[in-house]
Simulated assay, not measured.
Amino acid sequence: MKKVLLVGVLGLGLVLGGCATTSGLNAKTGVSGFDGKKHVRIEPHGAACTSMICPAIGAIWIEDAPNLVGLNFEVVNDIRSINSAELNIDGEIIKLTNTNLTNFNTNIGVSSAKIYTTDFATVDKIINSKRTWVRLGTSKGYVEAAIIDSSKDSKAFHALKRFKSQVEITQKN
């Protein structure tokens, strides 16, 4: 009985630990074979979602444009066109623009993605904010969730922190 209880407690710990918002993929630095320029990328990570259809955020930085960042927004668990992306950072509404088409991925699950270019300072604002929400306008309505909201953070929030740190390391080298 003690063994079963111990296994149950350890299993619960693994499940809860697996849901930690600080976990996730690391940002990676690459070098272009074409021109030798460096870039940093982090795959999209989920916001603080309350439903299965959820926004996720990743980022890309390119050495040629050090003051810009591409924010890669995904709608996870559904195929829908992404028409707009907005951030509410401590009450400041930032409407991002992009005229490219949405990419649809059904290889490893179901998602729709689109990259929006903004100032790198936007990443700093998110990381230093007390409250940031993302809202994606899609062909099926809005999808929104917190990136950080007081004490509620998300994998996306911590992924952006890892991304910024990797960009800083890459710029020094």
Rank of each mutant, 00 (worst) to 15 (best):
M1I: 13
L5N: 10
L5T: 12
V7I: 15
G8H: 08
G13D: 03
L14M: 14
V15W: 10
A20F: 12
A20S: 14
G24K: 00
K28P: 00
K28A: 12
T29W: 03
T29Y: 02
V31P: 06
S32T: 03
S32V: 04
G33V: 02
G33S: 09
F34C: 07
K37P: 00
K38W: 02
R41D: 09
R41E: 09
R41G: 05
E43K: 07
G46C: 11
A48T: 08
C54Q: 00
C54D: 01
I57H: 02
G58V: 03
G58Q: 05
I60Y: 09
I60R: 14
E63T: 09
E63V: 06
V69K: 04
E74Y: 06
V75A: 03
V75G: 00
N77D: 14
N77H: 10
N77Y: 09
I79D: 11
S84T: 11
A85E: 00
E86S: 15
I89D: 01
I89F: 00
I89W: 05
E92F: 11
T97E: 15
N98C: 10
F104S: 02
N105S: 11
T106R: 09
N107V: 14
I108Y: 14
G109R: 04
I115K: 08
A121T: 15
T122I: 15
T122F: 02
V123A: 06
V134A: 12
L136E: 05
L136V: 03
G137R: 05
G137N: 08
S139M: 05
S139R: 03
K140M: 12
V143A: 07
A146W: 02
S151G: 09
K152T: 13
A156H: 05
A156F: 03
H158I: 08
L160N: 02
K161N: 11
R162T: 03
R162F: 01
R162L: 04
K164W: 00
E168S: 12
Q171A: 12
Q171P: 01
K172A: 13
